[in-house]
């Protein structure tokens, strides 16, 4: 199995011994040894995945990297976080996924109203199976644990990924102030309930919810 490790906080090094990893197209910065790069059309989920991704706007430009040696990945100097999966499902935006073990299955899932407010569409990418994945964040991400007794509210623009059995719903604090342009800028939040981990970045995407 491919071994993921971080070289600093912005470069991901993957040791390969004849196996393969999926990575964002064009994110290789250097490699030692022999590597081949092959684009996987439609995010590497086959024809059905390709159609789904086209329809849902969760298109991923993914390549398969195969070979012997060490391959280094980085993307626009964003911070990289490693996630180890043991049978769970990771929910992450396609644009925040840097690399994943090729044994992990990727797919798309419907997120409901949350997606629209986050500024990243109604669908999100799922990664499931056993292995490692690398996700990107703007700034060093923090990992927050959610337990049944402590639900968590997150700004939609700062959310990047989550794992575990979590129920999410959208809550709004819109009141008359929002309509007269005196809103606090925190009119919308995603509420996570259940058991799991949420990854939050110290920066906010421009979202519809962030403006009000």
């Amino acid at each position: 199995m491919a071994q993921f490790r971080l070289q600093g906080s912005k470069v991901l090094a993957v040791d390969l011994t004849g196996d393969a990893v999926k990575a964002k197209n064009g994110s290789m910065v250097a490699y030692e040894g022999d590597m081949t790069f092959k684009k996987m059309s439609g995010g590497g989920d086959g024809l059905r995945g390709m159609v789904t991704r086209r329809l849902t706007g969760e298109q991923m430009e993914v390549m398969e990297v195969k070979g012997h040696g060490t391959c280094y990945f980085a993307d626009r100097a964003t911070e990289i976080n490693l996630v180890s999966l043991r049978g769970e499902t990771l929910y992450v935006e396609a644009s925040n996924l840097l690399a994943a073990d090729s044994s992990l299955r990727t797919g798309t899932t419907f997120t409901g109203l949350r997606g629209a407010s986050q500024g990243n569409g109604l669908f999100t990418t799922t990664v499931e199976g056993s292995g490692q994945a690398a996700i990107m964040s703007d700034g060093t991400a923090i990992v927050l644990r959610v337990t049944p007794s402590t639900p968590l509210q997150v700004d939609p623009g700062a959310y990047i990924a989550h794992t575990g059995k979590l129920k999410q719903h959208f809550q709004s604090g819109v009141n008359f102030r929002t309509f007269i342009g005196e809103g606090s800028g925190e009119a919308f939040q995603i509420r996570f309930e259940g058991e799991g981990l949420v990854y939050v970045q110290p920066s906010e995407r421009t979202t519809f919810g962030g403006d009000v």
Binding site: G8, K10, V11, G26, S27, V29, A74, R76, A77
Partner: peptide, 9 residues
């Protein structure tokens, strides 16, 4: 030694 940056910019 080669020096590589964490970005394609």
């Amino acid at each position: 030694t080669v020096y590589v940056q964490a970005s394609e910019e």
